[in-house]
Structures are given as structure tokens and as C-alpha cells.
Amino acid sequence: MKNDTLLFTNDFSESGFVFAPFDSEQKAILFPLENSEFITEKLFLDAFIDQEKTFFADEAAKENHIKLVDKTIKEIKKNDLKKVVVSRTEQLEITDFSLLAVYQKLLQNYTNAFVYVWFHPKVGLWLGATPETLLEIENSVFTTMSLAGTQLYKDTVDVVWKSKELNEQQLVTDFIENQLSGISSQLKIDKTETARAGSLLHLKTKVTGVLNQKSTLKTLVSALHPTPAVCGMPREKAKKFILENEYYKRSFYTGFLGEINIKSLKFKTQSSSLFVNLRCMNINKNNASIFIGGGITKDSNAAKEWEETVSKSNVMKRVL
């Protein structure tokens, strides 16, 4: 940006880069294309060994998260909720923070992710490496994905998934298919596969289609965000539960970011690429806020859900 004015997109018809919060009722920040400068730099990644480190869990945080998960499970069982994604945040004091070094570690550890650094003087510094595409669209042809389930990567992607993760993944896929069926055609749902993201594995299903002529990028974004992978089902009830019961405000965690309406004169196309803001952190002076969560269903176990968030938080802590 050429100045520090905070701008927002009105209807996703502009060209530029957007940074959107989890709460879809709030506006997405826009870096307009005409106000931006593009700088290209070659980064030479030093060999970085992801060393095993010991991190100690906060007992109060553990107790709070287990209480939240138990409350969520009870709410699901007595309600028509099928899934709710609940999350927490950890505060980590950092010394000798080097933005470039952390960015390089993220690039090296997450070769299949969208790795970013985002800063605005009126909002702050965010960075992360997200394995989840919200959508990619070129002219009217789009690609999205459902992503759910987590387990540690242990030298192979040939793993067995339990029914809880498989059912959770199917819920996300079914939601996406239902949301897109009325605004697109030629929907194709690929076979579900195991995808690696750093030291974690997830279930991933690719979905492609063609946006109808009467539909817009805003229509498509509204249909998908927030997905059940970061919110739950039914979406509005799950979102209401999250906003009322989590111990903090998500802000831009589980929102989305990326380029919109970038034109290519050479290929006569217009494309947008948006990514769900997962595996991210917010840096404020000598403090890093790390965000982690997991999908809760009626079959969830609170203690195991806590351990999953610990695994996810350790992944991000290792790059600091």
C-alpha cells in the first residue's frame, strides 16, 4: 500500500488483495491493485531442520478448552447441530524475532501451503501457512476443497482414518455440494485423499465447477465462507455458538485472504485465489498469538481434541 488508509471491499468486484475476518458480517480489508506496489525477490532457503522441541501446556488453558469441548458435545447432542469447530489461542513470548527467518521456515516446512506475511499499521502483523483453499476461479471456472480431519505425519500418507474424521469430512463435502448446486453447473467432486501439511495430515476432497452467469464472486464467497471446516453445521447456528462461547475473538483466524479479480492481458482472463486463514499467528511486539482449533461432533472426545490442538500449536511454535 502507498498509504496507511484502511480500505474495505464492498462487493468483491474490485481488484487487489483482501484480508477477511471469520465473522462474515464484518467487512474484508482491501489492498486495491491501483494503490499497491509489486516487488519480486528471490529467497534462498537455508537448510532448516525441524528440531523436536518440548512445549509445556498451560493447565488453565487445557481445563478451559476441555470444558468448551464438553459443552459443545452436549449442545450437539441436544440440538440439530451436526458439527461445531471450536478453537483457542495461545500467547507466546518471543525474543530476537526475525520476520524473514520465520517466513523462510514457513516456506520450507509448508511446501504445499499458501505461505504469507500480511501487515497493516492499523491492524497489525499476521503470518501463516494455510493448507486450505477457499476457492480459485478463472473467468467462471472455479475450484474449491473440503478439508477436515487431522493426524500427525509419521513418514507416510498411507494411513487409516477413523469414522469420526471420515464423517466430519463428508459433512464438509456435502455442505459445499449443496451450497454450490444452485449457483453453478458441471460440479465435479473428486475422490477424497490424504494430504500432508507440514507435520500434519488431513483429508481433502477437490471440488470443481462453472459459476452461473447471474452469480458473482461475492455470491460464491458468501456460499462458501465460513465453511464447516472452520465453523460447523448448520452454519449459522454453529457460528452463533462459536461467537458466544469461545474464550476469545477470532478476528482474522479462519477468515480468508488472497487476490481478487486480477486480469491477465496476455491470456485474456480474470482470476481470484482465496485461502482460508489457518496455521496462522498474530505478532504484537514481543508476543505471538497462535490460533488452533478442531471440529467437534457427537463422537468427539474432549481430551483427544485438546491433544490435537497441542499438536497443531507445536507445529507453529517450532518456526518461532
Rank of each mutant, 00 (worst) to 15 (best):
T5G: 11
L7H: 02
L7V: 12
N10L: 07
N10M: 09
D11E: 10
S15T: 05
F17I: 08
S24W: 07
K27H: 12
I29G: 02
F31I: 13
L33E: 14
E34N: 14
N35A: 06
E37G: 11
F38K: 13
T40P: 10
K42T: 14
L45M: 06
E52Q: 00
K53H: 05
T54S: 14
T54H: 05
A60T: 14
K67S: 07
L68C: 01
K77M: 07
K78C: 12
L81N: 00
K82P: 03
K83S: 10
V86E: 03
S87M: 01
Q91F: 15
D96A: 14
A101M: 09
L107F: 04
Q108C: 08
F114S: 12
F119R: 09
V123N: 07
G128K: 04
T130S: 02
E132H: 01
L135Y: 05
E138K: 15
T144H: 05
M145V: 15
L147T: 12
A148I: 04
L152Y: 11
Y153L: 05
D155P: 04
D158R: 13
D158K: 12
E165T: 01
L166K: 06
L171H: 00
Q179H: 06
L187I: 10
I189R: 05
K191D: 11
E193L: 14
G198S: 11
S199H: 13
T205R: 06
K206P: 04
V207N: 09
V210H: 11
L211G: 04
N212Y: 09
L217V: 03
L224M: 04
E236L: 05
E236S: 05
K239F: 06
K239H: 03
L243M: 13
N245Q: 08
Y248H: 14
F252N: 12
T254N: 02
G255K: 02
I260Y: 04
C280R: 02
N286G: 14
S289K: 14
I290T: 03
G293F: 00
G294Q: 03
G295N: 08
K298P: 08
A303Q: 10
K312A: 01
M316G: 02
